[in-house]
């Protein structure tokens, strides 16, 4: 299909004085795993709720595969939602929960029970149909909520921080599974999260939200390697922002730039400098040994700090701490610099 799955045209949602979403343009492609990333209060959840129909834009239009849905109630939109708190109906069995959408459509009991159980297989929970939500663990409820939404074959599936309540291990496992399920069913997923790692792991594309606006839309690599604003640089990964006189000294331009910590190499003061490299000298102020890698905080000559990460390939914790308060030279490739403006 050439129509975009979701299209926002100048969409705003104001709550009185508060501009939760302010004149947002957005396009989500068909079949895409799309993430909305941002801190709480950045407008990402409001956008999701407007797609679902729980909220309506105060200005602008929302299109779903070309149809203007801005004013449709939730039950007339071919989208389904996986809620942050799962919102399973406590008085119904898992089977009835999953088959709820089909029941509303009037599908006969035997048929919808069969479908519900098929969907339970899809989310890897066969045989759980007769239980009640209270008998399930957080991760299992999560899967049931997913099944309840998927069974209706929505054109777009909305996920509102669905992994937020799970512990780290389970969350990582679910990230992989979600991605797999999305490939299996081929539905457009819109995933809201405040966790940059989660967004980077799963998404085809990411929109970074800040204060009701979208700062940048792009592939995970785009957003990470080439942040277009200081906010994106800071929110996705560690911000290594340098501007003004120091920037001038390093790059020859006072424009503010960002460089990712793992792109920087700690070098000896007499190391050879190649032409495609930027150089900066400074003093190592702090060394944090983290097993797999070590974080260094380097104070540059003339002001400003850069964080550097180096893998501990041959070094040990004793070696790395030795260079604390030593003078050092930092090197990184010119292509790894993003000019972020502001």
């Amino acid at each position: 299909m050439s129509e975009p799955a979701i299209l926002f045209k100048n969409v705003s949602r104001h709550f009185g004085e508060v501009k939760a979403v302010d004149n947002v343009q957005l396009e989500v492609k068909d079949g895409e795993f799309f993430s909305m990333l941002g801190p709480s209060g950045s407008g990402k959840t409001t956008c999701l709720r407007m797609i679902a129909g729980f909220d309506r834009p105060t200005a602008g239009q929302i299109f779903l595969y070309g149809q203007d849905v801005s004013n449709l109630p939730p039950y007339e939109r071919p989208v389904n939602t996986v809620f942050q708190d799962y919102a399973l109906f406590p008085h119904m069995t898992i089977e009835d929960n999953i088959a709820y959408g089909l029941m509303i459509k009037g599908m006969p009991k035997s048929e919808r029970v069969k479908k519900a159980n098929e969907t339970l297989d899809l989310v890897r929970m066969p045989g759980y149909g007769k239980r009640k939500p209270s008998q399930l663990s957080g991760g299992q409820r999560q899967r049931v909520a997913l099944a309840r939404a998927l069974i209706n074959h929505p054109k777009v599936l909305l996920l509102d921080e669905p992994l937020g309540a799970l512990d780290l291990k389970l969350r990582q496992q679910m990230q992989v599974e979600l991605k797999n399920i999305q490939r299996e069913v081929g539905i457009t997923f819109i995933f809201v999260t405040h966790d940059q790692e989660e967004a980077l792991t799963m998404s085809d594309r990411i929109a970074v939200f800040n204060e009701g606006n979208i700062e940048q839309v792009g592939t995970p690599a785009d957003v990470y390697e080439h942040p277009s604003t200081p906010f994106v640089a800071g929110f996705v990964g560690t911000s290594n922002l340098i501007a003004g006189e120091v920037a001038q000294r390093i790059t020859g331009s006072p424009k503010r730039f960002s460089v990712r910590p793992e792109k920087i190499r700690l070098a000896q003061m007499d190391d050879q400098i190649e032409g495609d490299m930027f150089v900066a000298d400074g003093i190592v102020r702090d060394v944090i040994y983290l097993g797999l890698y070590t974080r260094y905080l380097v104070e540059l000559e003339g002001g400003g700090d850069l964080v550097v990460i180096e893998q501990n390939l041959r070094t040990s914790s004793i070696d790395v701490t030795k260079i604390k308060n030593q003078k050092t030279r930092l090197l990184w490739k010119k292509e790894h610099v993003s000019y972020v403006g502001g």
Partner: peptide, 28 residues
């Protein structure tokens, strides 16, 4: 005490206000 989003979930799954009241709100 009930989940905030239960009513929204029901509407999201295609139930109108009356169906939501009957199937979700009343039993709860």
């Amino acid at each position: 005490r009930s989940s905030n989003s239960m009513i929204e979930a029901s509407m999201d799954l295609g139930a109108n206000s009356f169906q939501t009241f009957w199937h979700v709100v009343l039993p709860n």
